[in-house]
Amino acid sequence: MGRAPEPGDEFLMRDTTSHPPAYAPAYKTSVLRSPRNALISLQQSLSEVTGPVFRAEELGPLDNDLILNCAHPDQPHGLPIGERIVVHGYVRDQFGRPVRNALVEVWQANASGRYRHKKDQYIGALDPNFGGCGRTLTDADGHYVYRTIRPGPYPWRNRINDWRPAHIHYAISGDAWAQRLITQMYFEGDPLIASCPILQTVPSEEQIRGLVALQDPGAFVQLDSRAYRFDIVLRGQRATWFENRVQPLPAGDAR
């Protein structure tokens, strides 16, 4: 395939058929929050092929351990209640290359389906030992891992009896602004997956399957935690062979 891409190389066009449309009326909130005009497509410049760089020392030692990062383990009943799980996977680009040093941020409800958020009024109980957020950087292989409590499903006001499947929210910051992505991870076998209006905004079975984490017995911690595997694909970065490179020209050439 010729040379490998370098920082600053272009990214593949985003395939809009891989994503939900902005206007998806079964998810009612999208009706007034979706643009009516078509997006205007850009050829990428430095503004899109660069992005923020994060450093390991910005994160705390428990930032990827949601079981402990809000717990009081020195007290009786100091651990959060619920199913202990490890979630891990690889962040790659569309050509299968590992995305290194990507910031992976996650947030979720507790085992009751209750969020630690001042706007969540659901009757499901708060857990004094569970916060519900974490973050980590991928390693040299693009691998990430965190530990948490499996979230519960919860009701929401869309139709009056709509329930979200158990899910964990993800925000991923890769090599460039053009790769920025927010998504949600679901759990293999959850019967609510088939009826969720948010998940059903995704336009194909294949893409929905890509959001479902698989139980990973090989990564179970014996007598301690089960594990799930969830891989993420970000937009592919490609070396440019013939066209003008995006950047840069010598400074003196800038008009």
């Binding site: 985003r14 569309q94 929905i208």
Partner: peptide, 14 residues
Amino acid sequence: PLRETASQTAGPYV
């Protein structure tokens, strides 16, 4: 190329 992971809303508790 692989397909990019599908986006989902950030939701109200982002």
